[in-house]
Design a protein around this nucleic acid. Sequence first.
DNA 1: CTAATGATGAACT
DNA 2: GTTCATCATTAGG
Length: 191
Amino acid sequence: MEQLQNVLLSGSIPAAKALLGWKLVHETDEGRMAGYIVETEAYDQVDPASHTYTGMTSRNAAMFERAGTLYVYFTYGLHYCLNIVTGTKGEGQGVLIRALEPLEGLERMRELRNTSSNLLLTNGPAKLVQALGVTIADNATSLGEKIYLEAGFHPQEIIQTPRIGITQAKDELRRFYVAGNPYVSHTKKRY
DNA sequence: CTAATGATGAACT
DNA sequence: GTTCATCATTAGG
């Protein structure tokens, strides 16, 4: 975890890669939900697609905090997504968690997501936030409170691609995922 | 199977 | 008024 903090400090791109395989845990009153991180994207202040590109606003302020802060934002009028802030305080960068492989609390996740398919539980940034029961109230809190990371597995192969759902800087290779993992977003439905 | 679209609100020009 | 780091559903082939 010492190691992890150093990687988070080193910048969003190495952090996005290093976070793959870590277990993201949320302790709630309804139980513990957890999953391996299998897909991420890196954002920083020199990136036109980043919320921090044009500077600090009331929405993105958490991204300018120190590494390990959580940035939860509301988008498209109905969805929330979760980032882990990277870099030093004031840099405005972070890693978007795009997909998890569900591990613990599946029952509760299916309830929150209103689906019976495990594959569709957490294979997208807004989906995993809903499945884990994360809310806007968690914005600007830190890893180590109700939400934290535990050591997981070491990915065998990591694929790097352009990011998803953006129009700016669409050719920058800032998306990373665990090769062959069925819970990666935009995977064909197979159930 | 793939493509189009509606939901729904905050931030920005 | 337009854009958006999205998703579920519907229409089409």
